[in-house]
Amino acid sequence: MIHTRGLARRFRVRKEVVEAVRGLDIDVGEGELVAFLGPNGAGKSTSLRMLTTLLPPTAGTAVVAGCDVVADPAGTRRRIGYIGQGHGAGEQFVVRDELITQGRCYGMSGAESRTRAAELLDSLDLAEQAGRTAGTLSGGQRRRLDIALGLVHRPRLLFLDEPSTGLDPQNRANLWRHILRLRAESGTTIFLTTHYLEEADSMAERVMVIDHGRVIADDTPQQLKADLAGDVITLTTGTGPEAARAGGVAERFASGPAVTVEGTTVRARVRQGDAVLPELLRTLDGEGVKALTADLRRPTLDDVFLNLTGRSLREGDAEGAAA
């Protein structure tokens, strides 16, 4: 569905050259649900704009839904849906009218567009708002209208740029229910950008981590976490010497030099911590070391990002650099 080779974009800001995206080689197959994860300014939106023909690349190639984005932008546009960061519907335009116009923009007849608009209004729970202007909708309703606008022509490939930014948790969950249902019903390939770790973790089947315009990791969230972070087991014992002995035992289970002992606390980085923990406790019992508490922490994608770049994704988020 998406194949890029060396896709790059540089901007000239005053006299400085900014390399926003530096050589993207990605392949996304039919039906995948891929999240592009990275801090603000990592090149997520720039990449998405190139893939959706909104921005010409300065180098490289991209074939999207079977069309080259540079040689055949119109063909690409016909085959893809795009839901940007902003709101697609104009404030003073009537919800139903905007959906009908959108259908007409994709070459559907008036009657066809009206039928499709009614269908989408129903399926996205907007039927009651159909006669209102978009400016009067709530944040969640407006976002659902954006989604509806992107789906009018039943694209096989859907791009979403930060779809849930600015939504409260309830509306975010609601939005995802609609996206996942769409995918279950029509097998649409979905490519989205996000800087919400939990979103990428729980929703995407494949996560591409992007930083400074480059993809630095690309796998399932589970595999990324297992390969690049690992689980952490924390034990406490009654005394320091006991903790040292427990550390020695934990060494046998840990992956690499990943055990630290501080006072009565032992920390061990392991693979598949859920399986290791009971085994570790049994071994400690057998050797007469009494663990007082045992805790298992599964890694997050933030740990993955931290291990890859030495920076936390959350810190970058707080700085709020321009996208």
């Binding site: 959706t52 023909t53 909104l54 119109a74 546009r77 016909r78 893809i80 795009y82 940007g84 960061q85 902003g86 709101h87 697609g88 519907a89 104009g90 404030e91 335009f93 959108q102 923009c105 994709y106 070459g107 954006d146 606008l149």
Partner: peptide, 17 residues
């Protein structure tokens, strides 16, 4: 100007129009 600011211009630009 308003269409550019809100995103409806962008939405039109992604259609084959």
């Amino acid at each position: 100007i308003t269409e550019l600011a809100t995103g409806s211009f962008e939405r039109m630009m992604v259609t084959p129009l």
